[in-house]
Amino acid sequence: MEDTAKTPDTNAGRTVGKLELFMGFAEMALGGFGGVATMARHVIVDRRRWMSEREYAEVIGMGQILPGGNILNMSVMVGDRFQGPLGAVIALSGLMIIPILILIGLTMVYELFAANADVQAATIGAGAAAAGLVIGMGIKMGRNLRLEPMHLGFAVATFLAMGVLRLPFVGTILVLAPICFAATWWRRRK
């Protein structure tokens, strides 16, 4: 019998089959209308009990510092944990295949009505709102991070390089990230 009275610190003995893996990730992607991150934690920790809260936090924390989307990276690590590299492929497929089909379907339906003046006006409004959404996300993140002045400086420098000067991404990251790392390292050593 499983002990449901308390949340275990680790779900080390938990096994997850291939089908369950696919279904779980599809559930996260489809249930996460307007944001997969919240839904992902809910499915993995609460609903399906694949991992404990702490284990999930570790995986998502790792996903954030690696290149690639943190949800994608988390999917790879969770899939690999239960079913090896094939599990990583299954997790990614569960996360992406159905949403991509929906997106393409949505796009094709949109194209049918794209010439309509109302649809064109609505699209301009939706585009502006979607852009505002990203700015709002940035503001929220900035507030939650409570950066020290030095790190705020790096945030501003990154913004200026990418948002104002429109420098190429790869070069910008390869210059700014190591400098920020070195500066942070040096500060902690003192």
Binding site: A130, A131, V134, I139, L145, G163, A177, F181, W185
Partner: peptide, 29 residues
């Protein structure tokens, strides 16, 4: 270096996200 990286990357990501919003807004508006 691991905790250092966890402190050093979020400011960069923050700058990128705000830049994303501004660039997308310029395209949209």
């Amino acid at each position: 270096w691991f905790p250092v990286l966890q402190l050093a990357l979020p400011p960069i990501v923050l700058g990128l996200i705000v830049a994303s919003g501004v660039v997308t807004a310029q395209a949209a508006v």
